[in-house]
Amino acid sequence: MALKVGDHAPEFSLPDTNGNIVTLSSLKGSRVVLYFYPRDNTPGCTKEACGFRDNYAQFQAKNTLIFGVSTDDAKSHQKFTQKFDLPFPLLTDADGQVATAYESYGLKKFMGKEYVGVFRNTFVIDTEGNIEKIYLGVKAELHPAQVLADI
C-alpha cells in the first residue's frame, strides 16, 4: 500500500547523531522534513545535506525541523555532521525499518549490480503528523531549495 499525501506519517523512534532518541510523536506541533539518503560523505548526499544546511535558517523561520535518515551508524553521522557543519540531526536507521515504512528502502541497481539500499525520497510532515508532501527520487543538489519553496 503506497503512502500518499494526507496519510498519517508512520511513527518512528531512531537515535540521532548524539545518541538521543527522536520520535515522530514528540515532534507534533512542528512541521518536519524527513529526508532519506543513501550514504554519508558521498557526492550527492553531501550536496543535499549542504543544501538543507544553507537554507536551515529559512526552514526554522517556517517552524520546520529537518532530519536526514540513512542506515549509516552514529559515528559516521558525527563525522559527516562535523565535516560539513550540519545544524540538524541525522538519524540512524540501521536495519532500514523506518525507510521501509516510508517506502524508501529496497532493491536498487548501480553499474549493473543489484543491492538493497535507501532511496533518495523526502516527506514533509505537517504539525499534526500527517504527510503534507512527498518527493520521490529527488535530484540532490536542487531538492532542498525546492522543498523550501513548496512550504
Rank of each mutant, 00 (worst) to 15 (best):
29 G>A: 13
140 A>K: 01
140 A>M: 05
62 K>L: 15
20 N>T: 12
110 F>Y: 13
110 F>I: 09
142 L>W: 13
57 A>I: 10
7 D>C: 09
53 R>E: 00
2 A>M: 15
29 G>W: 11
69 V>C: 09
146 Q>T: 13
91 L>S: 07
8 H>S: 15
4 K>N: 13
99 A>H: 07
142 L>Y: 15
63 N>M: 13
33 V>A: 00
128 E>Q: 11
4 K>M: 13
64 T>Y: 04
110 F>P: 10
27 L>A: 03
117 G>P: 04
97 Q>D: 14
85 D>I: 08
67 F>D: 00
56 Y>R: 10
41 N>L: 12
151 I>N: 09
5 V>L: 07
122 T>N: 04
3 L>N: 05
19 G>A: 04
10 P>L: 03
100 T>C: 03
98 V>Q: 09
1 M>N: 14
48 E>N: 04
87 P>T: 06
131 I>N: 02
20 N>K: 14
50 C>I: 02
112 G>H: 12
36 F>D: 10
128 E>T: 12
99 A>D: 07
44 G>F: 02
106 G>M: 06
84 F>E: 03
50 C>E: 01
145 A>T: 11
5 V>H: 10
8 H>K: 15
40 D>C: 07
144 P>S: 01
29 G>C: 10
142 L>Q: 14
150 D>K: 05
3 L>P: 00
45 C>R: 05
21 I>H: 12
101 A>Q: 13
85 D>Q: 11
6 G>F: 06
135 Y>F: 12
141 E>L: 06
96 G>E: 01
30 S>A: 15
108 K>A: 10
20 N>I: 11
120 R>W: 08
40 D>F: 09
122 T>W: 03
139 K>A: 13
74 A>P: 06
126 D>M: 07
147 V>P: 08
84 F>V: 00
60 Q>K: 12
79 K>Y: 09
82 Q>P: 04
85 D>S: 15
42 T>E: 07
138 V>Q: 03
57 A>K: 14
31 R>N: 14
70 S>D: 05
34 L>S: 00
28 K>C: 10
143 H>K: 05
30 S>C: 14
121 N>L: 02
35 Y>I: 00
69 V>I: 13
113 K>E: 07
4 K>H: 12
125 I>V: 10
126 D>K: 08
75 K>N: 15
130 N>W: 02
33 V>R: 01
14 L>N: 00
63 N>T: 08
139 K>T: 13
60 Q>G: 04
23 T>W: 10
16 D>C: 06
123 F>R: 02
89 P>C: 10
27 L>I: 09
132 E>R: 14
96 G>H: 03
32 V>L: 08
133 K>A: 11
133 K>P: 00
138 V>F: 05
36 F>W: 08
121 N>K: 03
